[in-house]
Design a protein around this nucleic acid. Sequence first.
RNA 1: GCCGAUGUGGCGAAAUGGCAGACGCAACGGACUUAAAAUCCGUUGGGCUUAAACGCCCGUGCCGGUUCGAGUCCGGCCAUCGGCACCA
Length: 728
Amino acid sequence: DPAYYKWTQWIFLQIYNSWFNPEKKRAEPISTYQGEDPDSVRLAYVAEVPVNWCPELGTVLANEEVIDGKSEVGGFPVVRRPMRQWMLRITAFADRLLDGLEELDWPLSLKALQRNWIGRSEGAENEFRVAGSSRSDDRTPLRDLPVIRVFTTRPDTLYGATYMVLAPENPLVDEMVTEDRHRPVAEYRAQIAAKSDLERTDLAKEKTGVFTGAFALNPANDERIPIWIADYVLMGYGTGAIMGVPAHDVRDLEFARKFDLSVVPVVQAPGKTPEESIGYVEDGIAINSPLLDGLSREAATAKIIDWLEKNERGRRNVRFKLRDWLFSRQRYWGEPFPIVWRDGRHEALPEMELPLKPPALEDFKPTGTGEPPLAKAKDWIRYSENATRETNTMPQWAGSCWYYLRFCDPGNDRRFVGEESERYWMGGNDEAFPAKPGGIDLYIGGVEHAVLHLLYARFWHKVLYDLGQVSKPEPFQRLVNQGMILGEDNRKMSKRWGNVIDPLDVIEIYGADAFRCYEMFMGPLEQMKPWSMKGVEGVSRFLARVWRLMMTENQAGEWELSAAVQDVEPTKAQQKITHATVKKVTNDIESLSFNTAISQMMIFVNAFIPQRGTEAIPISAMHTFLVLLNPFAPHITSELWERLNSAGNITAQTWPVYDEKLLVEDEVEIVLQVNGKVRDRITVPLGATNAELEAAARANEKVRNALGDQTIRKVVVVPNKLVNVVGG
RNA sequence: GCCGAUGUGGCGAAAUGGCAGACGCAACGGACUUAAAAUCCGUUGGGCUUAAACGCCCGUGCCGGUUCGAGUCCGGCCAUCGGCACCA
């Protein structure tokens, strides 16, 4: 709908025309940027980077859309390939996306998934000077030596760094490698380049690597350590280079053992000798580290970072696993970018030219070459004499990043959401709802969106928040994950297993009411649970019982209102069950415990059914019941509501209220226990005193038998519930 | 390896620290029917004892703890599922 994606394109332009001010830690209009090249800091930018290319889908994919080297949609192979693509600078918001989670009422597991994906690590970046490389030798002054930066979460183990490893793809390798090591290094790099991501990350495989011939100086003690390249170091994380601390890192130890590199323990494990501490990766006491000896990990870390900073050999540093969001696709069905290219530079399309509609094409299919389908529309591409349109399109996530905002004000043609509507629905505390935290009150969705939609939408929302377009920094205040419905064989529904249940087939046989009610009756909302056709049948039977509770079939085979349904006062028992049902269903809906709400309504119907013919069914109780059941089974309850000749529309009725006084029993059953074991049950009037209950228990024959010749040491009385006689 | 969930009958599941298994499915028995379907009624955790009833014992993944009392709280394991993963 162009009236919708117009605003998706508009929001993209807001992102494009913004930058992240690191001092204020927030997005600002690009006009506030003082630097030379605004294009280098925009939140939407173009970069030539190795991307996830999926030949089968004919498009590139975001990291979040690649699972185990396969596309999230369809499961097709994905390969690394350098391409020029649009990226969104989500990494600038990594800290805020992480911190923002704290305040959210989300499942802990989901927060953990996002935290994990963002992957914040605290540590230090150390500078290793390179001596004895193709660019330097022993006579080069220290300050002129090339520098390799290395990130570590364990700066306290710096003295134990006995070698260094670069990722094979690291461009620094070319600068480091010495004449005599050229061949083996080139061969190794070629060998690694030929491997797929999957092969490379196979944990089981042996460590491989080659020496570059170059040496670095350990910044802690200026000791010469060899520089290797190995594929266990990844270009995509940190700086693409590590310091090898074999004594306290299992991977480094494996590598060092294989290539006979020296291993120096610098952390002593409790109760172990230094030699025995090799392989120990937990916190311990620093040894063999002149500046740090005797310090705990915490103290050693603080001290070495101070020292590094003072000596300009390193600094405190934080790293994230989160990468920028690859935002362009080579597909027809996506929002076209509101961008034109002129003289090799991109620029924003004027707002008044939105929506930018895609051109009509004969063939929508991906080209397969990486060239977007839109590139085929030569007339459309040509924007002016010297400018052409961007031909990539946005991913499906773009539109879903802000739809909840549009829901607040769907018809607005002047803004993506009216300011007042946005404040009303998404804003926080106001006079009417003082405790409202803002954002969407309740968002129900699957966990599969953990690091896709839920991450992307939070990011967009934060940009809009910084730009003053929305009133709260988080979009989804409370979130509940509904569990996945498995096939009847308890496996994930999939064509492969032939266990897919089509809702339409179920609705065809049992109706939408039965389908809905069964889904809610199956079990707790959040839980994964298998489908059962028999279960649907059971719920369908319940709805049929509801029908027959009020309706009878006449001689002609037509359903008519049952004669038992009368305008009479409910009996005391009927009143009690009705009020109990109102209470249970109301509370269960609040807590999203729909399964037990339905159980209670089954109990209600079971309580009324046997009385048919012998006792009148009060129409008032039926009215109450139908209103309770209406959200679960809207069709049958609407029909019955009409058949009862009730006034108004059932969906417009006020929700029933219960009277706690009517739920109180006259008599209660008291459980008698001896030493915690149930021995008897007695019925006493409500409100019997503790003394009365205790006396009744002491006098009870079964209690006395169970006690035998034990003396009573203690009697615990829980009013209206239980008496526990403790003997011994 | 790290993080997170979950373990209760034949099955889906209930249970503010207080009667374990509500409700439903399945199964079995019965009523209705020429018969079947549908519907209705009843039984249904395991074991021992008994002609039967009554009665008794065991039972919420395993081991321990707290408590008058634990499916529930605490500690330690085990298993299954999900996510991340040579992340430095």
